[in-house]
């Protein structure tokens, strides 16, 4: 180690310190997370492969449900499920990285910085939205190649994107909140199960009118049913506002609640 540089006077010290603003930190954290896709592909590839498998398997296995009046086009019905589920798992990934970083101590570095606390939530949120684009586009392409119809056109793609990104954010904030409380990778199964429970106790597989008993009762009040209706709005027919507003409302409410959950957890971690 050589003794070059650094011989700045104390007076120089404060000139180095600008105001730590939220946005640059958010961008840096998001950029890092996107870069990590290539550095740790094993953590990301499943979030693309799994939804592709999902759409192929469900549309292949349950193609016969057309005869039971479930839908007209299995690909169109299951593409939104695969897109939303894939996005949700990208959101869960934000929780996984937080688990990893809290366990390795790297998170202490973020907590120690004078950066605004909210940037620690908005950074992963921005990253989630960017990363979720990959499975989103991939599944849409697979669906179109597989014969999906999108009667709603561009608006149909937009409403599905909205539903997927919103769901991704809900799971991202929820899983960050869990990570802040568990502070270990033991939280991982809880995070994953959350996606399955919320999605499959809604209209993930079949429309409400086919369901019976307890599942019908649960799915009818599950807000994810509204989100699926929003996502499928332009994929089963023309986009109509009555199919959208419930999902938009559910997303707004649950993004706020999960953000609050994460924020409380984060605040508990830093005095």
């Amino acid at each position: 180690m050589t003794a070059v540089g650094l011989e700045r006077g104390r007076a120089d010290h404060d000139s180095l310190l600008g105001e730590t603003r939220t946005w640059p930190v958010v961008v840096q954290l998001a950029r890092r997370s996107v870069v990590l896709i290539t550095r740790l592909p094993s953590a990301f590839i499943p979030s693309v492969v799994f939804p592709v498998f999902l759409i192929l398997a469900f549309s292949g296995s349950f193609n016969g449900l057309r005869g039971a009046n479930a839908f007209d086009n299995a690909m169109s019905w299951y593409a939104p499920l695969a897109v939303i589920q894939g996005a949700a798992f990208v959101g869960v990934g934000a929780g996984f990285s937080a688990n990893r970083e809290i366990e390795s101590g790297f998170y202490d570095r973020l907590l120690l910085a004078p950066a605004p606390t909210v940037s620690l939530l908005l950074g992963p949120a921005l990253a989630t939205v960017l990363r979720a684009l990959v499975p989103l586009v991939t599944v849409m392409v697979v669906a179109l190649l597989g014969g999906a119809a999108v009667p709603g056109g561009a608006l149909g793609f937009a409403t599905l994107t909205l539903a997927a990104m919103g769901t991704a954010l809900i799971h991202a904030f929820w899983c960050l909140g869990l990570a802040y409380r568990f502070k270990s990778q033991r939280a991982a199964p809880v995070m994953q199960i959350g996606v399955f429970v919320t999605n499959f106790l809604a209209t993930a597989q079949v429309p409400l009118h086919l369901m019976t008993g307890w599942l019908h009762s649960v799915a009818r009040v599950n807000p994810m049913t509204n989100v699926f209706r929003l996502g499928r709005a332009g994929w089963v027919e023309d986009v109509r506002w009555e199919n959208c507003w419930g999902g938009v409302l559910a997303l707004a409410v649950f993004i706020s609640l999960s953000f609050w959950f994460a924020w409380r957890g984060l605040k508990r971690m830093i005095p």
Partner: peptide, 18 residues
Amino acid sequence: ALNSAALGKVPGQLADRF
């Protein structure tokens, strides 16, 4: 449990319709 509640009506519908 999930599948029987989601798909329970399907056999009947197929029998009735086809």
